[in-house]
């Protein structure tokens, strides 16, 4: 028996909006520690890892570990039927072939339930090694989204370079080229507006902008984003989800042949 009650149901709606274009089908894993998902995109270039910790739910009952295969397009259709202020409860029986999403309006005067069929999905769980990153950049998520969107109008790939001077985003295409440099700044008023760079050594990596733009659909989940980079390793783009967890995107760099 599984029963997870999330008071801030809009978080789940936002999570689905953030990942449904990257991944079509995925297994949601439920255990004592939380509700999680790990899935790769169809080209095996990017991976998304979601964690919603059990203590972030108002009520969290998971009698035994459960893996539920869901089509994210269909799940998103159902969650779109929940109001932004609704409380969402996810219910499933052990060994059952469906999951139920229950939506309650804040004043409790409307209750809906939507049952969705589960599916069998063969997925390999990728063990991502713990690594020390050469550079970690924390910046406003809206700024990162803006840069990715702007540069994708010029080119297909972006070179992200971190040095002691700041983080530089560069692209070039048929019509020309562009560079955006964000320097470290400290905002006294609002930590969310800060750009903070922790660097052990300079790093420069090339990525397909198409994927980074897809990741920025998670911008609504967090005011800040963290980019963790090491030489010749996938970048980790992380959005914290309030007090409850995180969504991390891993993207393989492009390497000179």
């Amino acid at each position: 028996m599984l029963e997870l009650r999330l008071v801030q149901g809009s978080l789940l709606k936002k999570v689905l909006d953030a990942i449904k274009d990257l991944v079509t089908d995925a297994n949601f894993d439920c255990s004592e520690s939380g509700f999680s998902l790990q899935a790769m995109d169809s080209s095996h270039v990017a991976l998304v890892a979601l964690l919603l910790r059990s203590d972030g739910f108002e009520h969290y009952r998971c009698d035994r570990n459960l893996s539920m295969g869901m089509n994210l397009t269909n799940m998103s259709k159902m969650l779109k039927c929940a109001g932004n202020d609704d409380i969402i409860t996810i219910k499933a029986d052990d060994g059952g072939d469906s999951v139920t999403f229950m939506f309650e309006s804040p004043s409790q005067d409307k209750v809906s339930d939507f049952e969705m069929k589960l599916m069998d999905i063969d997925s390999e769980h990728l063990g991502i090694p713990e690594t020390e990153y050469h550079a970690i950049v924390k910046m406003p998520s809206a700024e990162f989204a803006r840069i990715c969107r702007d540069l994708s109008t010029i080119g297909d790939t972006v070179v992200i370079s971190v040095s002691k001077d700041g983080v530089k985003f560069s692209t070039s295409g048929d019509i020309g080229s562009a560079n955006v440099v964000c320097r470290q700044n400290n905002s006294v008023d609002n930590k969310d507006n800060e750009t903070v760079i922790e660097m052990n050594e300079p790093v420069s990596l090339t990525f397909a902008l198409r994927y980074l733009n897809s990741f920025t659909k998670a911008t609504t989940l967090s005011n800040t984003v963290t980019l963790s980079m090491s030489k010749e390793l996938p970048v980790v783009v992380e959005y914290k989800i309030a007090e409850i967890g995180h969504i991390r995107f891993y993207l393989a760099p492009k390497i000179e042949d």
Partner: peptide, 14 residues
């Protein structure tokens, strides 16, 4: 032109 590699190949190298 830089080539796009598979994500798992990077982690396999570690």
């Amino acid at each position: 032109t830089p080539v796009q590699n598979d994500l798992m190949e990077f982690y396999a190298m570690l």
